[in-house]
Design a protein around this nucleic acid. Structure first.
Lengths: 341, 341
DNA sequence: CTGTTAGCGCATTCAA
DNA sequence: TTGAATGCGCTAACAG
């Protein structure tokens, strides 16, 4: 466990010089000593002590990655490849930049605030933050913050976001259904809280339907529970004798796939008996039969953009685009029936 | 940012006393001062500075969770719900015990060693560690280590493992195939390196087949690439004119599901044309049609057991069972055809 | 270009 | 039962 002092002694220089070499402060070190010190650093296998670094006021190089989710849904929600894709992408980026990822899954803003202080976090990436607590966190935390898949109305300019063109996605899906002759659909939201993401996707649909003079309002909206049995009840209510809708617009591929599977068990034919659309274009939509018509998003990209935005904030560079909305596109597959001709 | 000193001043006591209160050293503090100090702690919202803690020799309370995986396969591999399930479970446990999770995805043992030193990690949970580098890490790291889904032959006693009864799983699957009248099968391993996990699952199959006097050796083994196109080539080679096998034994549901999907695109009927089995019993095997016959494992449990074992090591309690092998069971679904009558 | 010094916040002697 | 002093490894302000 060689320290800077040790290295300094071995190299016959002062600790300061060693620090300067380590931090690439080459202006303050001669070529010769630099080389000499670098050799010793290698030879004695110097490893920094982050405790000391944090203590001496530099930030910790830790990026806190917080997924807002009740721990008891951990395994359920994390089953969705979206979470892993974004975690993986963030880790890769952060790692390659010489920072560290501290992961936390929580619903408590206090915990996040405490975490940031305790570790002097270099930055925070917050995923799925509920509307009311985003502002609180931002106000109480010193570290720069980037929000992913989160929405807060007021003062949009205070926040740094990475989101999706969720309205556009909803619009694309609904328009596709309309073009296939569908006139009655229901939107199945991912969350009983009807998050900002769900809301925007729903609104996109609404706009499209309105443009075609098709009624589509809050009655066409169902909020899915995180409890699987509750969801199954909903699914089964959707396939009664006289099916009230010709199409089910899911706000995620995960639940769309689950529903398709459920319907198949009930001998309901997709898309002949009822059409289904998803959102995300994740592996489920491709693996399942029928393959699901959905909205493509690049969740890895989301993570990468979040990291690069955060890095700019950390380095106090100006962030030109505070509110990134990644593009989406419609992927037509086999889960929507053509009703017109 | 109130420090211990601040609190001490406010409470009119010495820093030492405050520390003692914080650490529950009630033997060294009078009831009255304890209450007084506790009030101040609350009032001024004391948050510890982990930098200082690390520096003053106590461990960091950070648990390093390392997934051994080439970053470029991040998104692919993490698509498998297994990874998220185990990460989620570990985070939940670690979190509830007042520790922190630092996540890293890497293939480099040096990086792991450096991480452990740099952060004075309280402990390490290493997932999917290649055979040759496990021993190196254990020798070079001060922190206690628990290995998950990793296998090293020599000196089994040195290591702390959480694995699966992989042989048993292989045995169960093969026996099921045999009971359904299958006499020729091929094993599709998850990795071109044929990891210890793959090997054990394969050996389980081998034993079962041998017991029934069916030939099953290295010719019945194919190593799948992480490159999707490469896998597709393999799948397509399996369904030539005269199919060489009646059953495909996949070492994961992930690839089993992918193959089933691929076969369906090629108009190969599962299980009529060829039978398929998986391993893991993850969401894919349930969502897909036909539902896949597979081996159930509880990946969340794996994470929890790993954490509890690690905690014992951290607290220097004796670990009675160093080599946990979680039980598995056969889940019969619809992807295996009955060939006998 | 290089070295000396002080201090970050905490736990831990040791002394009272 | 309480407090004062020390040092962990590093950075940065200041001197040389």
């Amino acid at each position: 466990m060689s320290t800077i002092k040790d290295i300094a002694k071995k190299a016959g220089v002062s600790p300061t010089t060693v620090t300067n070499v380590i931090h690439g402060n080459y202006a303050r070190v001669s070529e010769a000593t630099r080389v000499k010190v670098e050799k010793c650093l290698k030879k004695y296998n110097y490893t920094p002590n982050m405790g000391a670094m944090i203590l001496s006021q530099k930030d910790s190089r830790i990026i806190g990655v917080i997924m807002f989710m009740e721990p008891r849904w951990n395994e359920t929600v994390l089953e969705d490849p979206f979470s892993s894709a974004i975690i993986g992408a963030i880790e890769e980026e952060v790692h390659s930049l010489g920072y560290y990822v501290m992961l936390q899954i929580t619903t408590s803003e206090e915990e996040v605030i405490r975490l940031a202080k305790t570790w002097k976090l270099a930055g925070l990436i917050l995923v799925w933050v509920p509307k009311n607590i985003g502002p609180i966190i931002l106000d109480s935390v010193e570290s720069p913050v980037v929000f992913v898949d989160s929405h807060f109305d007021e003062d949009e300019d205070k926040y740094h976001y990475v989101n999706l063109q969720d309205e556009k996605g909803g619009h694309l899906i609904a328009n596709h259904l309309i073009s296939m002759g569908h006139k009655s659909a229901v939107f199945l939201a991912n969350d009983i809280f009807f998050s900002g993401t769900d809301l925007r996707r729903f609104n996109g649909c609404k706009t499209a339907f309105k443009e075609s003079n098709i009624e589509f309002d809050d009655f066409n909206k169902i909020l899915l529970s995180k409890e699987r049995n509750e969801r199954y009840k909903v699914y089964s209510s959707l396939i009664g004798d006289e099916m009230p809708y010709t199409a089910l617009i899911f706000s995620s591929d995960y639940y769309a796939a689950e529903a398709v599977s459920y319907f198949q068990d009930c001998n309901v034919k997709i898309p002949d008996d009822i059409s289904v659309t998803g959102y995300d274009d994740n592996i489920f939509s491709r693996l399942i039969r029928p393959k699901i018509t959905t909205i493509h998003q690049n969740s890895g990209e989301k993570g990468r953009v979040a990291v690069s935005m955060l890095m700019k904030l950390i380095k106090k560079e100006t962030v030109d685009l505070k509110n990134v909305k990644l593009d989406v596109e419609l992927v037509i597959r086999d889960s929507v029936k053509k009703l017109n001709n």
